[in-house]
Design a protein around this nucleic acid. Structure first.
Lengths: 112, 112
DNA sequence: ATTAATACATAGAATTACGAGGTATTGTTT
DNA sequence: AAACAATACCTCGTAATTCTATGTATTAAT
């Protein structure tokens, strides 16, 4: 598990990207998928994920559809048009930032 | 300039790495070097840099030597032994994190 | 002489993930 | 049947960290 500060500014990008690739997902599914894809190195906590989903929904980046699984209500989140646009911007910025950081801190690794 | 949250958790690593490569540097020099190496994309603000240098000094990662340039006092910072050890740890963690993030968000780019 | 650049510093604001706590259902094990 | 683990959602206050704004002072350039 990484120092939590490292994750700052990347959580939204991760969520936007996952939803863009998978169509729609519910909170718990997102956290499990991140855990799986990161080999257990990024563990999104409830206290981070659900507030983030709500904030992004409030900002118009996401919507959700409620479905009943047995007696349980499950919220499937999906990107809005605005969310798709933001995703492109966020990922571009993140990509550029990672490249810059690589250059700054690991110059010997930079592969063109 | 990136969304400021992205930098979180990376500032110490950047400072440790610069000092490791350049021996000793003073605050303003560090900010200029980061600006230069990042093509103006990462602009460390006074309000970020000086407190960070002080905190790292308090934590025993850095020491400094004061020199008089004319009437001005200039503080040259350098790594302590502990700072060098931390640098190795930080950079390893950062490198791993960047690799994980790349895999998560830019799977199509992952090169091995 | 005025301005820009150099060089340091601090206090409070803003952001954002986390910890701790809570509720409830479903599946598994003893 | 009971107990536990896993699933699934939520909220509130805290912690950590960078930034904004502000300040001081010297030196170089026009």
């Amino acid at each position: 598990m990484y120092s939590k500060e490292l994750l700052k500014g990347t959580l939204s990008a991760i969520i936007l990207n996952l939803l863009a690739e998978n169509g729609r997902m519910y909170g718990y599914e997102i956290s499990q998928r991140v855990k799986e894809l990161s080999d257990g190195k990024i563990l999104l906590k409830d206290g981070s994920l659900y507030p983030a989903l709500q904030t992004m929904t409030k900002d118009g980046l996401l919507t959700y559809e409620e479905e009943f699984i047995g007696k349980r209500v499950r919220k499937y989140y999906l990107l809005t048009t605005k969310g798709e646009e933001q995703k492109v911007l966020y990922l571009a910025e993140l990509k550029d930032f990672l490249a810059t950081l690589n250059k700054l801190v690991f110059p010997q690794l930079s592969l063109a």
